[in-house]
Simulated scan of single mutants.
Amino acid sequence: MNETSCQVLVLYYSKHGLTKKIAESIVKGLESEGVEALLRTVPEVSNNIDESALAVPKNGAPYVTLEELANCDGLALGSPTHFGNMSGAMKHFWDTTSGLWLKGSLIDKPACAFTSSSSLHGGQETTLISMMMPLIHHGMIFMGVPYSVAELHKTTTGGTPYGASAVAADKKTKLSHEEEEIAISQGKRLATIAKQLKTNSGK
């Protein structure tokens, strides 16, 4: 990344693929505004974790590093709903970021969140709020989806003012038109704010 470019980290965990679809739509929005999108994920966690297996994921986006998080100009954070909360894998990653918190590495950088659930009332908004909390503790500027996004008024599945979302009912593998447009709009807004903040900071 050169000195004049703006790079936004799109960090997600996806078990069955729908949260990844939202991440990819956010990337579309970011790139349409001329921002470099860095798509990353986090490894699984379990009681029998094999540390040697964490270097490279089996497929999809690479695993994120703390350096990539520290150097980003903005962040889109995504996880499926696990009992109304972010996934254990994503929470585990944020529990490793104390060093960045001590340095203030993420202060005044813009951030947003996205999620998916298996049912319409499956805890999407509480999951988005759960992801908001560590970002606020890191001093980031959290942004949602404004009602100027027309699809937010029309959606009958996913999409909230707290962040882009999708409903994965009936083994759904694609986003609805409204879900995709809300995610793209969220990416565009994040790109616009990230560029403005970076320009104003003089970095």
Results as ranks from 00 to 15, higher is better:
Met1Phe: 10
Met1Pro: 12
Asn2Lys: 11
Thr4Gly: 03
Ser5Arg: 01
Gln7Cys: 11
Leu9Lys: 05
Leu9Tyr: 03
Leu11Cys: 01
Tyr12Trp: 11
Tyr12Arg: 04
Tyr13Glu: 10
Ser14Asn: 10
His16Leu: 12
Thr19Lys: 04
Lys20Thr: 10
Lys20Gln: 15
Lys21Asn: 13
Lys21His: 11
Ala23Met: 08
Ile26Phe: 00
Ile26Thr: 00
Val27Asp: 01
Gly34Trp: 03
Glu36Lys: 11
Ala37Asn: 08
Ala37Glu: 11
Leu38Pro: 01
Arg40His: 07
Val42Gln: 06
Glu44His: 13
Val45Ile: 15
Ser46Ile: 07
Asn47Cys: 08
Asn47Met: 13
Asp50Ser: 12
Glu51Asp: 13
Glu51His: 13
Glu51Gln: 15
Ala53Phe: 14
Val56Met: 11
Val56Gln: 15
Gly60Cys: 04
Pro62Cys: 07
Tyr63Cys: 07
Val64Thr: 13
Leu66Trp: 06
Glu68Asn: 05
Ala70Cys: 10
Ala70Arg: 08
Asn71Tyr: 08
Gly74Asn: 02
Leu75Val: 12
Leu77Trp: 05
Pro80Cys: 10
His82Phe: 13
Phe83Ser: 11
Asn85Lys: 03
Asn85Gly: 00
Met86Glu: 08
Ser87Met: 04
Gly88His: 06
Met90Arg: 01
His92Phe: 14
Asp95Tyr: 02
Thr96Lys: 06
Thr97Gly: 10
Ser98Trp: 13
Gly99Glu: 08
Leu102Asp: 13
Lys103Trp: 10
Leu106Tyr: 04
Asp108Met: 12
Asp108Phe: 09
Asp108Leu: 11
Ala111Pro: 04
Ala113Arg: 00
Thr115Arg: 00
Ser117Cys: 09
Ser118His: 09
Ser119Ile: 13
Leu120Lys: 11
Leu120Glu: 12
His121Asn: 14
Gln124Lys: 09
Glu125Tyr: 05
Glu125Ser: 01
Thr126Gly: 01
Ile129Trp: 05
Met132Arg: 05
Met133Tyr: 14
His138Trp: 05
His138Gln: 15
Gly139Trp: 11
Gly139Phe: 08
Met140Arg: 00
Ile141Pro: 06
Ile141His: 05
Met143Asn: 08
Met143Gly: 03
Gly144Trp: 06
Gly144Glu: 11
Val145His: 03
Val145Leu: 04
Pro146His: 08
Pro146Ala: 06
Tyr147Pro: 02
Tyr147Thr: 12
Val149Glu: 03
Ala150Gln: 14
His153Asp: 12
Thr156Pro: 05
Thr156Met: 11
Thr157Phe: 15
Thr157Ile: 12
Thr157Trp: 14
Gly158Cys: 02
Gly159Glu: 03
Thr160Lys: 04
Pro161Tyr: 05
Pro161Met: 07
Tyr162Lys: 00
Gly163Cys: 00
Ala164Pro: 01
Ala164Val: 01
Ala164Gly: 02
Ala166Asp: 10
Val167Ser: 04
Val167Pro: 04
Asp170Phe: 12
Lys172Gln: 15
Leu175Lys: 03
Ser176Arg: 03
His177Met: 10
Glu178Lys: 03
Glu178Tyr: 02
Ala183Cys: 06
Ile184Phe: 00
Gln186Asp: 06
Gly187Met: 06
Lys188Leu: 04
Leu190Gln: 02
Ala194Glu: 05
Lys195Val: 10
Lys195Gln: 14
Lys195Thr: 10
Gln196Met: 10
Gln196Asp: 15
Gln196Leu: 13
Leu197Tyr: 09
Leu197Ala: 02
Lys198Phe: 06
Lys198Gln: 09
Thr199Ser: 14
Thr199Glu: 15
